[in-house]
Design a protein around this nucleic acid. Structure first.
Lengths: 201, 201
DNA sequence: ATTTGCATGTAAAATGTTACATGATTGC
DNA sequence: GCAATCATGTAACATTTTACATGCAAAT
């Protein structure tokens, strides 16, 4: 099976840009990939130590005039190879656990309005996120035009935009479905008979 | 903060349908919500024990003629309330870790063809999943027409379909972006200068 | 002075996966 | 008889989050 620990690769990836400290890496994650990836100090610092032991990164403490030295790490040739090998393996599908869908799946346990609120709250959040993404697109295309990595950044951005657009449309459809079912809920056929044959999300 | 353990609610939710054993619950998860939720025995069995101690479920072992008795659990009034309280809380956004986007974000570390393969593999998988979802839709609408929970099942199904459709369109766009960047990669402006200001996914 | 942010970490807890052990029953 | 599946779990491991501890430096 594919190596499950991907903190390694997030770290190695950022170290291809420039030597960084654990703190730098955390900030870099937050500033550039936070919308689809997270790392905590509890993962980064121990992993940097391990990667140094394995020869994939090198500790190269940098003196600074007046300040205390920072613990900088740079990627080694070995580390670069390890990263590239990982980039060549097809990505695993993420282990999905969509709380929203779990709640809606059991929606018949609460009233119509509760389910409505659930979807509306999701819609609101999605809308705000989407606007944020569009702002990022504007900034990226104007201020980073011509950057070697821009196409890759735009790819990940586009993924988020399309995902959110699809979710907005889904919200509208789900609300329609909900209202329709509310208006027919006393039908004679509305009985509970076991579980459905595989629902998707 | 919201109670993070959602195995509780998956279990309580299924027990609203009928009394079940740990084994039954595992099968129910696999058969009906596997596309957006997973549970392992290592979570289900210990949690059933805990829920019984807390009075949210009741052990009601069922004798069977000729067979050994099964360890069935049913939901209590308290358990029902706990589930409903949770259904009323707006769902947390899932902690996303999209390996595909992490790989593409560092795409400049490998060649054009590698990134192409990455996207094409994802496209292929997404296409197959989408077709599977459409089969499920056909089965649900014909064989479960009028079921009380059908609207909720269709909502979760629709989410998956729209998600996958959006991803397919994204794949095509991403491949275009990739090919364009390959054809202009020797431009004078193509330099590496730090990290972008927040990329999304 | 003191708060805020920089900077480096660790420890404990929670969460989740995987593999294994065990034995009954059913279908071929 | 034998394989598959039913059925109930546990233990070990891996992963991830959260909270805490520590101290320096810069700004107010």
């Amino acid at each position: 099976m594919a190596s499950p620990n991907r903190t390694i690769y997030a770290i190695l990836g950022f170290l291809t840009v420039k030597p960084m400290s654990g703190y730098d890496i955390k900030k870099a994650v937050e500033v550039s990939i936070a919308n689809f990836w997270k790392e905590s100090y509890g993962q980064i610092y121990p992993m940097l130590k391990r990667l140094a032991e394995e020869g994939l990164v090198e500790k190269t403490d940098a003196e600074q005039c007046g300040k205390r030295p920072r613990h900088l790490y740079s990627i080694t040739a070995q580390g670069r190879e390890k990263l590239q090998a990982w980039l060549r393996v097809p990505a695993e599908p993420p282990p999905l656990r969509l709380e929203l869908l779990l709640k809606l799946f059991f929606g018949s346990q609460v009233d119509h309005q509760t389910n409505r609120h659930q979807i509306e709250a999701f819609r609101q959040r999605t809308q705000e996120e989407l606007e944020r993404y569009r702002t990022i697109r504007a900034v990226l295309t104007t201020e980073r035009s011509g950057h070697r990595d821009l196409p890759y950044w735009l790819m990940t951005l586009s993924f988020g935009e399309r995902d959110h657009e699809a979710h907005l449309e889904w919200c509208d459809e789900a609300l329609r479905l909900l209202d329709q079912s509310a208006s027919t809920k006393n039908d004679a056929e509305a009985t509970l008979t076991g579980l459905p044959p595989m629902i998707s999300g």
